[in-house]
Design a protein around this nucleic acid. Structure first.
Length: 352
DNA sequence: TCTGGGGTCCTAGGACCC
DNA sequence: TCTGGGGTCCTAGGACCC
């Protein structure tokens, strides 16, 4: 299993089409206006030196680095480059490609020389895009994914069953793919702090404290265990959603209903081409100052009709408090589940 | 200090039925 | 009048990822 991850993807795309930005602090996020409610999608290395990082509110970023170049996030541009990256990978003979996001993919192959294959993948991506990537190698998706971090930038790195603990054993469990701050804190309460601790933990205890599926999964994660096959069948989306943070809080219920309808129609536009019916609709409301609730409801019957999706969203919306300022609204439509299960589902925690 | 947008899956509890 | 055990469906909330 190889994990291909583009280096500084968004910043690299932006600098590539504006070479005059080379060497400058560049911050991409929102619509490029750092006075608005938005967060940083990517900061160039030069901007990072000022303490700017992705996820940071743009308002904070401009305070830390007032001279940075602020650019709007341009999804269409990143998608176009991403498609070329994925096509270049898929064109390498003898590989399977599993796309994991705009800028990363697993590549499966049978080879005696995975490092040589990794270099071939890097060359193929560079030829197609003139952009650089890093390749991690492992015998599971977890080992390959974790290896990538050690190869950045432009490198190749391999993790094996033998090197997993020597390399990662002393790191915090939070370094692992699929363990964030919450789970890391829960594990710490059990005395499990490092990857080595987790590797040695009792799966039964973890099942008791973290759930019958996730507990044993985390125990395996500590040892680098995971899926060893790359699945190249196209991903079938479970849902589509649209959400908006308003620059000014919405204050009247009429306005909140109007905006919910706008979002619901946008979701309809996204799903109409798919052909599959919608079975459930959910609405997300973020109240002032930052309290978020999601409510969901099954539709009376599966539908492909715009008005029924809108009506469903408005029925769900009506269950929220009517008299509080709203800073975000979201609408999600779920396709009717089709019963057949994707093998990726056997790999809990991430998108599989 | 102010916290985006788009996704996936797991867990737990209540309602309801036999 | 007070009550077990098992199962399914539904929704809310949580956690994580890119």
């Amino acid at each position: 299993v190889l994990h291909v991850d583009m280096d500084q993807f968004i910043a690299a795309v932006e600098v590539q089409r504006r070479p005059e930005l080379t060497g400058l602090p560049v911050v991409v996020g929102g619509n490029g206006d750092p006075t608005e409610r938005a967060v940083v999608a990517t900061a160039s290395y030069e901007a990072r030196a000022f303490g700017v990082h992705s996820g940071m509110p743009m308002k904070i970023a401009v305070r830390k680095c007032p001279d940075a170049v602020f650019l709007p996030s341009d999804h269409a541009a990143y998608e176009e480059v991403s498609a070329r990256v994925m096509a270049a990978l898929a064109a390498v003979p003898g590989v399977k490609v599993e796309i994991m996001g705009w800028d990363e993919a697993f590549v499966g192959a049978v080879t005696d020389d995975p490092e040589a294959l990794a270099r071939r993948l890097q060359a193929a991506v560079f030829e197609a895009t003139e952009l650089h990537c890093t390749v991690g190698i492992g015998d599971t998706t977890v080992r390959a994914k974790m290896a990538t971090g050690f190869g950045k930038p432009r490198g190749v790195y391999r993790l094996t069953a033998d090197t997993w603990l020597p390399v990662l054993g002393e790191r915090s469990t939070q370094a692992l793919w699929g363990i964030g701050t919450r789970t890391s804190a829960k594990l710490a309460e059990l005395g499990i702090v490092t990857v080595a601790d987790l590797a040695a933990a009792d799966p039964h205890l973890l099942a008791e404290r973290l759930g019958p599926t996730m507990g044993p999964y985390y125990a395996g994660l500590g040892r680098g265990l995971g899926r060893s096959e790359v699945i190249d069948t196209p991903w079938v989306a479970r849902s589509r959603s649209r959400e908006t943070t308003y620059q000014q809080d919405l204050l009247t219920w009429e306005e909140i209903e109007r905006e919910t309808e706008v979002l619901a129609r946008r979701v309809f536009d996204d799903v109409v081409g798919d052909g599959r019916p919608i079975g459930r609709v959910s609405v997300k409301v973020r109240f002032k100052p930052f309290f978020t609730q999601i409510k969901i409801s099954k539709l009376p019957a599966p539908t492909r009709d715009a008005d029924e999706i809108v009506a469903g969203a408005l029925r769900v919306l009506d269950k929220f408090d009517h008299d509080r300022p709203v800073r975000l609204l979201g609408v999600r439509a779920e396709f009717v589940p089709d019963g057949s299960t994707d093998a990726r589902t056997a790999d809990p925690g991430h998108r599989r």
